[in-house]
Design a protein around this nucleic acid. Structure first.
Length: 728
DNA sequence: GAGCACTGC
């Protein structure tokens, strides 16, 4: 209800607040008047220039895409409905063609030409947004960034002339935070909706509300086929259009019996294909880096043992944290025969789920699918996200097998029985929203003006406990008041692309006189800090002892400080080497830092540092960290183990920590559940600070009985005594 | 004394 009221108010402001006036004027001077020139088939209506020869060539190819056969049908359905669902498999051309069809059919200027609207098309991944928009700009014979553009974090490649914008789903959600009715758009296309990313799921619910308040806005939801009816039900029975894909047939094979060891079975299958099947590259899906590297070694060894009768093999690992140069190897051609007339070579790609959606490798003919992947799971009771090797879904298995049929008919070997496929695999992977900590999402929703989360129309509503946990965390952080309304602090926090704890730490850091340092820490933590230092260390264990000799934390903070002061220093490769720093990761962190600084400046948050020679320098930093992470405190018990405060989980310092002793109180950035409960990226804090900085969370009245409580009680009493003494 | 599925802002 609250949201609707707010929205309506915003609509009434429509004529007063018109931030597109400038762009409208620009558009006119940029030749937008040619818009009416549709009748001249040789002139591009978007920029008034004659079409190039290349345009006409591409146009002929475009017309052979399956989706073109249904162009008229689509345009009629679009005209007649506010929401439309379009399902189509890989190769239908929907991602590139549908937005162009929409442009042809929708009036993007209001009659007096004071306002110009856009068409948006969302993608779950940045690379897709970039590459697809480039392709479409070429197809439309315009320059990228002008009439067709894209917008992703760190890069807005669009202009006042842009009529079609590809953007990540997360980016559209960000835009909605500043413009809740998405008033700059006339049509919004949500692509790859079946992937059910957190951002897409939030956009679903949001757009349903926006559509009620914006009768002129249209929504097209594009997805793979499997969940089409569910989407239809959710969007009030919106019409469904099906577009055939264009893939080569893939023959599916199951095992007769369940496999006990999928890794062994996968390698056995590879060898069978290599020795018995016609030429063609192989793609194997495994679960993680270590498993993949291990498998690659074993495969190379077995191929070598098989002898020269069979063709040569190139085994290539693939996972997202692999350096880009190594990732490129998946596109290398298969090796040539060893001798003239010998058996042709084969490329074997051993990959995580990246090859399922994000990366496409042409030339794959055989897919081996053991049926597992690492998936995120969330336990709201102890607020911990962890990764678990779990069976994949039917949809995922389908997607994997499709990877064999991109260039010619292929084969997919599923290392489980057909019965297991039918009975054991769930139809869809659980959407991310059901497997995540929602603190950040709830903050975003509040900022979007959604007051009543319980009745928010989620396609799959998260567990009430997960929502309650998120509300509780935000309330303790001061982002929401006791009625669940967004506070001024919460509003500022929501502007930062960070988790709420980190956003809080950053927003309050000027009070501790260390925002320059906290900016660096936030930037590095949110761009995976351990890769900056530790991956280098692991490779050079002989240098590690030298590094360990120094106080690790101080060392890291020192480099942080240099980072804060001299951002160009990491361009010096030898300096990076000497200081155990990965320049690529450092550059990424610096990008993040710059973005955070811009937000700080926008909200008048002071950029400041304590004097480096002051003994308060590190203390101030640690206090600011505590101000964000006081809900992630662990206490060292007399038994020598750490217990997380309140949740009372036994945890261990992750061996990658830089501490040379076990402090009584620590705050941690991450709780990871692997062979044991580990807390990773740990900083020591003092009990006295806890009382000062988070008195409400550490209020002893509703505190479970434990050693930490007794220690805190003593500290409170000591403080009382000191207070009285100073009075006397 | 362990070892990060994949995205995104």
């Amino acid at each position: 209800m609250g949201m609707e009221r707010k929205r309506k108010r915003k609509v009434s402001l429509f004529d007063v607040v018109d931030d597109t006036c400038v762009s409208a004027k620009l558009a006119k001077t940029n030749g937008f008047a040619v818009h009416g020139n549709d009748t001249n088939p040789l002139v591009n209506r978007w920029n008034g220039r004659p079409y190039s020869k290349r345009y006409l060539e591409i146009l002929e190819k475009r017309k052979t895409l399956p989706v073109w056969h249904q162009k008229e049908e689509f345009l009629q359905a679009l005209k007649a409905n506010q929401t439309l669902i379009l399902v189509g498999e890989t190769g239908s051309g929907k991602t590139t063609q549908i937005p162009q069809f929409v442009l042809e059919a929708v009036e993007l200027e209001i009659p007096d030409k004071r306002r110009k609207f856009m068409v948006a098309c969302t993608q779950p991944r940045r690379v897709a947004a970039m590459s697809v928009s480039r392709r479409v700009a070429e197809e439309m014979d315009v320059n990228i960034g002008e009439e067709v553009g894209y917008s992703i974090r760190f890069e807005d490649c669009s202009s006042s002339r842009t009529v079609l914008k590809y953007l990540t789903d997360g980016m559209l959600l960000r835009e909605a935070m500043a413009d809740p009715l998405l008033e700059r758009y006339k049509v919004i296309i949500l692509d790859e909706a079946h992937e059910r990313t957190l951002a897409t799921d939030v956009l679903f619910g949001l757009l349903k509300e926006v559509l009620k308040n914006r009768p002129d806005l249209k929504l097209v939801v594009m997805s793979a086929t499997l969940e089409a009816e569910k989407f239809q039900g959710y969007f009030y029975g919106a019409p469904l259009m099906k577009v055939p894909g264009r893939l080569h047939p893939v023959e599916i094979f199951y095992t007769e019996e369940p496999e006990r060891d999928y890794l062994e079975a996968a390698i056995r299958t590879i060898m069978q294909i290599h020795m018995c099947e016609p030429p063609g590259d192989i793609l194997v899906f495994l679960t993680g880096e270590e498993e993949i590297e291990d498998a690659c070694k074993k495969i190379s060894k077995q191929v070598a043992n098989a002898g020269d009768v069979y063709g040569p093999v190139k085994v290539v690992p693939l996972y997202s944290t692999l350096p880009p140069a190594m990732q490129q190897k998946i596109f290398d051609p298969a090796p040539p025969p060893v001798m003239v007339g010998g058996s042709p070579g084969r490329k074997i790609v051993v990959s995580t789920n990246v090859a399922e959606t994000s990366l496409t490798i042409d030339g794959i003919v055989y897919v081996i699918d053991p049926g597992f992947s690492k998936q995120k799971v969330y336990n709201p009771r102890i607020r911990v996200e962890s990764l678990l090797v779990s069976p994949i879904s039917k949809a995922s298995a389908h997607q994997r097998s499709g990877r064999a049929g991109r260039t010619q008919p292929g084969k997919c070997f599923r290392l489980y029985t057909e019965k297991s496929f039918n009975n054991d695999l769930q139809p869809q992977t659980y959407p991310e929203i059901l497997r995540s900590n929602l603190a950040n999402t709830v903050l975003t929703l509040k900022k979007l003006g959604i007051d009543d989360l319980v009745h928010f129309d989620f396609m799959d509503p998260p567990a009430p406990e997960t929502l309650m946990r998120a509300l509780e965390v935000l309330n303790y952080l001061g982002a929401l008041d006791d009625d669940g309304n967004l506070t001024k602090l919460g509003e500022i926090m929501s502007e930062f692309p960070l988790d709420p704890q980190m956003a809080k730490m950053l927003v309050v850091s000027p009070e501790f006189n260390c925002s320059n340092e906290i900016l660096s820490i936030s930037a590095m933590l949110s761009s995976k800090s351990h890769y900056i230092v530790l991956s280098v260390l692991c490779l050079e264990s002989n240098r590690m002892s030298k590094w360990k000799y120094n106080n690790g934390l101080r060392m890291l903070l020192l480099s942080l400080r240099m980072h804060a002061c001299l951002p160009s220093i990491y361009e010096d490769a030898s300096w990076c080497y000497e200081n155990f720093i990965n320049p690529r990761a450092m550059k990424a962190a610096d990008n993040v830092r710059e973005q955070l600084v811009r937000i700080m400046v926008r909200y008048n948050l002071k950029l400041c540092s304590t004097d480096f020679n002051s003994c308060d320098y590190y203390i101030d930093i640690r206090k600011a960290m505590l101000a964000g992470y006081f809900m992630q405190v662990a206490h060292l018990e007399r038994t020598g183990h750490y217990l997380t405060v309140k949740d009372k989980q036994v945890v261990h310092l992750h061996p990658s920590n830089c501490l040379n002793h076990k402090p009584e109180w620590v705050i941690y950035n991450e709780f990871v559940l692997t062979s044991r409960n580990f807390i990773r990226t740990v900083t020591d804090v003092h009990g006295e600070w806890i009382l000062d900085i988070a008195p409400r969370y550490f209020n002893l009245e509703n505190f479970p009985q434990c050693e930490a409580k007794r220690v805190l009680e003593k500290l409170y009493k000591k403080r009382e005594r000191e207070g009285e003494e100073s009075k006397n």
